[in-house]
Design a protein around this nucleic acid. Structure first.
Lengths: 203, 203
DNA sequence: TGTACATCAGTGAACGCGCGTTCACTGATGTAC
DNA sequence: TGTACATCAGTGAACGCGCGTTCACTGATGTAC
């Protein structure tokens, strides 16, 4: 344990990490401030030096998650350029990849019941993530004839919904045996959807 | 309050109803056995005359939910006959309608963390619901040329995922302002998807 | 119909527990002179 | 460099609370004769 602060050395981040691990293991319900403190090797009271309380700790974990999430999707989007289609598909894949790689963050972000509006920083991070997907959807929409073009925000909502659904239903070990790997499910689902938009070839 | 049992008159169902209401209001986290008992006008200990404990009560609420869910989807499926497309679309709409009309049940079923395998009756009810959607997907698949036909269970999983995603992200008052009514979102999303399968006209 | 008895749904008190939070404190770290 | 002091991260004890669960009980309902 490297000491870099006064006593513990970055207890703040250690608490967030402990919280994320507990959330991942036991769900947002199972997470307790006391246990997070214990995991970090510290008294529950020490948490209050860094956070306003239990909710604040979860919110900060969620905020960090949204920052990473937005970064990852932005990176995928950029990497797919200049093809609007490649950028869009990469962004969708980044969604699932993030959920799989950082389940604690994902749960804190979407299942912990924390309000995105409780904190401006949290809201900003969440909006940034949403904006990336909307940008990708908007770029893509340019390739659809105007009269057949759904609003970009609707396309983005469809993809977000399908991604989230796949994560919740099939990318979690919830006893519901997944009939297909989640990645395949999302890939094919988005593929069929894009074909429906007339954006990829029918065959 | 009509008395039809010994003292309370169907306390068992009253407890389930109370649990559903509490789950709807406060989430699966906020639900407590004690409060459900209080709502039903009874001592916490009385719950143990009818259920093995807290988990068992939630599981029973979820089971009843899956029964209704399966019934509703089956009804929608039947009503859409003999058109495979109409049956499929009606089934998808029934999904969202159920989630909107019975949020307590929906949460107990999909967000309470209750394992579908803890009880054979619960598992059976859940499987019945799943089977209806798979049947609808299978009927529909017959209209797709064999070489371009994805497995019916995959189509069913796509629709389930999108429906669940719409419910979780846009049909709940989670502060995330829905850009479109959830019904429209699901309707258009499924429509685009079906077009991608070549099952409805491109225009 | 009336009485004695059996059943069993719900009571009320008690339990041990872990929770989130508060508070005055302590003692290691950092800083001014 | 050395000393006195200020800062403040973390302690440890305490709190009130509501939780799920148990237990011996009570008393209303149902039943046998």
């Amino acid at each position: 344990m490297r000491k870099q602060g006064y006593h513990h050395g970055n207890l703040r981040q250690a608490l967030i990490d402990a919280a994320l691990e507990l959330i991942r293991e036991k769900g947002p319900t199972g997470f307790t401030l006391s246990e997070a403190a214990k995991t970090a090797g510290v008294t529950p009271a020490a948490v209050y030096r860094h956070f306003d309380g239990r909710e604040d700790l979860i919110a900060e974990a969620a905020r960090q998650g949204f920052e990473m999430f937005a970064d990852l999707m932005q990176y995928a989007y950029d990497k797919g350029q200049p093809s609007a289609l490649a950028a869009f598909e990469a962004t969708g894949r980044a969604y699932l990849a993030f959920a799989r790689k950082h389940p604690g963050h994902y749960i804190a972000m979407f299942e912990s019941g924390v309000s995105l509006n409780r904190d401006p920083d949290l809201a900003a991070a969440a909006n940034r993530a949403k904006a990336v997907l909307e940008q990708a959807a908007s770029d893509l929409s340019q390739h659809i004839p105007t009269n057949r073009r759904p609003p970009a925000s609707m396309v983005s909502a469809h993809i977000w919904a399908m991604s989230h659904g796949v994560v919740e239903l099939y990318a979690r070990n919830t006893g519901t045996a997944s009939p297909f790997p989640p990645e395949d499910l999302l890939e094919t689902g988005v593929g069929i959807y894009l074909r429906g938009l007339g954006l990829i070839e029918p065959d």
